[in-house]
Design a protein around this nucleic acid. Structure first.
Length: 561
RNA sequence: CGGGGAGUAGCUCAGUUUGGUAGAGCGCUUGGUUCGGGACCAAGAGGUCGUGGGUUCAAAUCCCGUCUCCCCGACCA
């Protein structure tokens, strides 16, 4: 393939509005172009990489017994209404109507529609289990798209759905896909961890996120260095035990704390450490019902955990005049949700529900009670690992895949039932498993680049070899370059021959930017009958004779990661 | 949704304070000299200064509206 007949437009300067390294490199190397916020076009070499990823995903899934199909991107509203997600999905869903005012959405995900399809065709347990997947563009109206294709309004996802006759079959299928996912990421040279996760809006019982190490990750998760346990903060149970020695319970005391609203201020003003302070947060549901949420001053509430406990959407109230001086004393226990650690704080400091005042020496049972005592605090670095007790780390990563057990969350409302072995009707058990294909491109670049540009792992490289005749007016250089390209191509390797009439430096820098694994230079060494070989990843350079080049190069390529 | 910043040539940006004929570098075109790490010389092309209105003899510049884009935050009492 001649460079001049390809469509590769590199940029010397980094576009101002690109933050993440992968975003900058994709723009500079000419893989993508921005069309609008969160919407990108894939230029030919970006498109090639995308296809390589899709092929790996297909190969591994097909090998694992999954079957590909293609669902529409434009979806009717009815099934979404049946499962309640037409409203639940909220503003993230692109909704539209056709000319006769029928309601549709651009699919943000496809549980409903696949369930409808399967429901029509599958009537017997003999047809189960079933693993169906598609590679399809998804549409989500993200509140804040960012980092190029990492968080965008339109993206390509591989979504797989499994259907089962029994729960054990579902769990077996889940683990099967879990293993397959590790193989997929490994085949794409991605370092990925499986992390216990929250099920999110999709519903279900347990779940994992597959998270890539990345500096631009938006998924915070806890990791145990000792046993390897990992969990997103939204799902992480905290097993912190308060082992304070028992103190004498002192008499509750009202103190003036003018203008001292934050934990930091009160901690300084009263010389109390934050973990001796009770923080009271006021939440309300959409109907305006109040919830007083109590955690230690040193802790934060994880709202995902809180919402799960409450069982509905709640919002932090910011307008109450007593904010800064709220406390659980004298609040009915039915309105209080306390964290498990909060009730153990003895002789605590807390707001007095009176402006500019706090109480000292407040104690659970005696001074306040909560009807609900739950794990709602966010895990903090150094907290004990729930499985082995070692101190956990917290780090960020980039979510590439997510697996869920959905049970009958969708099959029941959509009436996707089958006749089981004993002849009875029952809803199918369902699992769902996604991989962000477009996001993987960015993740690979995040993990494989240097200051000069991208370093493609060979499984994803748009070309295996890049051949550079230093001077295209030199007949010997061009002839040799073309001969090498032809030989490598007929041996089954994709080659890019940079035939542009530009200076050597331009070609070298573009080659480094684009990141083809092996570069061949036909230049001054040709006088000795040699071509120069550069390995992009290691920057190692050596020469080989033209005659022995092909076997040497193919052997070298086959050894590349 | 809240806050901050920015829209001037394909890209990066200057010019705006203090109103007076539209600028630079890179890129692009043509010719020549170069030819192993983003070469040089010469000649060119390219912008209704995001957009609508207002003030003024005169607006990229001042005022009001509007659109788009980027960043940060999305509330821890």
């Amino acid at each position: 393939m001649l460079y001049s007949s390809q469509y590769i437009h590199t940029m010397k300067e980094t576009p101002m509005d690109a933050e993440a390294i992968s975003h900058q490199l994709m723009l500079r190397a000419g893989l993508i172009r921005k069309i609008s916020t969160g919407i990108y076009a894939y230029l030919p070499i970006g498109c090639t990489v995308l296809h390589k990823i899709m092929e790996i995903v297909r190969r591994e899934l097909n090998q694992a017994g999954c079957v590909e199909l293609l669902l529409p991107a434009l979806l009717p509203a009815e099934p979404w209404k049946k499962t309640g997600r037409w409203d639940l999905y909220g503003k993230e869903m692109f909704k539209l109507t056709d000319r006769s005012e029928r309601e549709f959405c651009l699919g943000p995900t496809h549980e409903e529609i696949i369930t409808e399809v399967v429901h029509r065709d599958v009537q017997s347990y003999r047809d189960l289990p079933l693993f169906l997947y598609q590679i399809q563009t998804k549409y989500r109206d993200e509140p804040r798209p960012r980092f190029g294709i990492i968080r965008s309004k339109e993206f390509i996802m591989k979504d797989l759905y499994s259907f089962h006759a029994t729960l054990p079959s579902l769990e077996e299928g889940y683990h099967h896909i879990y293993q397959t996912y590790h193989r997929i990421f490994e085949a794409c040279a991605l370092q990925v961890k499986a992390v216990e996760a929250d099920n999110g809006a999709i519903g279900g019982s347990f779940s994992h996120e597959f998270v890539a190490d990345s500096s631009v990750g938006e998924t915070a998760y806890a990791l145990c260095p000792h046993c390897g346990w990992a969990s997103t903060l939204e799902a992480a149970k905290t097993s912190l035990q308060s082992n304070d020695p028992t103190e004498d319970l002192l008499t509750k005391e009202l103190v003036a704390t003018p203008q001292q609203k934050t934990i930091a201020e009160i901690s300084a003003f009263l010389s109390q450490s934050p973990d001796k302070i009770l923080k009271t947060l006021l939440y309300q549901n959409t109907a305006g019902k109040r919830f007083y949420v109590v955690v230690r001053g040193s802790d934060s509430v994880n709202e995902t955990k809180l919402k799960k406990v409450i069982g509905e959407e709640v919002f932090l109230t910011e307008s109450d005049p007593l904010i800064g001086f709220l406390g659980p004393v004298d609040v009915p226990a039915s309105q209080i949700i306390a964290d498990t650690t909060a009730i153990k704080v003895q002789n605590a400091v807390t707001g007095a529900s009176k402006a500019d005042h706090h109480y000292l020496h407040v104690n659970y049972q005696r001074d306040w009670r909560a009807d609900r005592i739950e794990d709602i605090r966010e895990l903090q670095p150094g907290d004990p690992c729930p499985t082995c007790g070692a101190g956990v780390f917290i780090q960020n990563g980039l979510e590439l895949g997510h697996t869920f057990l959905l049970n009958d969350r969708y099959t029941k409302p959509l009436d996707a039932s089958f006749v089981n072995e004993s002849g009875a009707m029952q809803p199918m058990y369902m699992g769902c498993y996604g991989i962000g294909i477009t996001r993987m491109v960015a993740a690979v670049i995040e993990q494989h680049h240097d200051e000069k540009g991208i370093i493609w792992p060979k499984a994803l490289a748009p070309f295996a070899f890049e051949i550079i005749p230093v001077n295209i007016t030199d007949a010997l250089q061009m002839k040799t370059a073309k001969a090498l390209a032809d030989a490598l191509t007929s041996a089954g390797y994709e080659c890019l021959l940079d035939d542009r009439p530009v200076s050597a430096g331009v070609k070298f820098n573009d080659a480094d930017l684009i990141g083809i694994p092996i570069r061949l230079v036909c230049g001054k060494a040709l006088q000795k009958g040699e071509v120069e070989v550069k390995i992009r990843k290691t920057c190692e350079i050596f020469t080989v004779s033209v005659e022995s080049a092909i076997p040497t190069l193919t052997a070298l390529y086959d050894k590349q990661p």
